[in-house]
Design a protein around this nucleic acid. Structure first.
Lengths: 141, 141
DNA sequence: TTTGTAATTAATAATCATTATTGTTTGCGA
DNA sequence: TCGCAAACAATAATGATTATTAATTACAAA
């Protein structure tokens, strides 16, 4: 995604375009591992040391409100941000706490079909979260 | 579950049987809504005001370590405890933050089969978490 | 039953992630 | 350029959880 597209994305969702917002959004979409606010801050402060951690929190939250980011909470209660908006599940490594996307159309369809076909005891389901937990396998060279 | 069974469960997992542990474990199995440590503390301090919140945390954690309780984290980052050990999913109400069990054999089998039949990009999966999120429907009388 | 010792507990301080506050800066239309 | 609202930086405050420490308790051995 280039800078113009990022700018468009930010303005289109009703937020003013600022340098901080661009830097933070870029950090998000360039990361593979669903970083925490802290990690985003660490990342961006190399090139932008003046952006405060509070701003990172606030900005990420406004992105979530605006619907251009998602957040989840990991096993340690830390918020993790996700720039992918389409239906997908997650892989979680219990050792490294890394979170990765797990995208599998068939699986998502399976879930969707299940929700539509079943009753949820008085609950109106509008979202489903699936996390596959385990450990990253050591590579055998 | 009667008191003898609770005592057995606690001692069988290698923990000494104490009054505090019994009270806390009982509170857990008698609750339907996956309480937080705070909520367990609130509950038990009616009859046992001397049991401190730190003890509740420590005790719940030792139960989790011992494998007789499970914990999850809710959308607000608060730890919630679950006395059911068999495979099941959860229903989460975004309004009340209540968590309830959702047990459906077919669904659990579906998941199990999926894990066995698929590859997870270098991850060894040993656990799967599914949360159906939504809102409790208003009853129409 | 008493004693010694390690485990458990209560009280409370400390920590960590997050949120709130406050004063300053910036973007931008009049 | 001016004025004002939004955004920001710095930092204080909060809330859940964990760590510390001293007191209590359980229980084995004498």
């Amino acid at each position: 995604m280039n800078l113009e597209l990022v700018k468009e994305k930010i303005t289109n969702c009703g937020l003013k375009f600022t340098h901080q917002r661009m830097v933070i959004f870029l950090a998000l979409i360039q990361s593979e591992s669903h970083p925490s606010a802290e990690q985003v801050h660490e990342e961006i402060k190399i090139s932008n040391p003046s952006i405060s951690l509070a701003t990172v929190y606030k900005t990420l939250d406004s992105f979530v409100q605006a619907g251009i980011l998602r957040k989840t909470i990991d096993q340690n209660g830390v918020m993790r941000f996700d720039s992918k908006l389409d239906a997908h599940s997650h892989l979680y490594c219990k050792t490294s706490h890394e979170i990765r996307d797990y995208k599998n159309e068939k699986f998502e369809k399976l879930l969707q079909d299940f929700i539509e076909a079943n009753d949820f005891e008085g609950y109106e389901i509008d979202e489903i979260n699936v996390v596959f937990k385990g450990h990253k396998k050591e590579k055998n060279y």
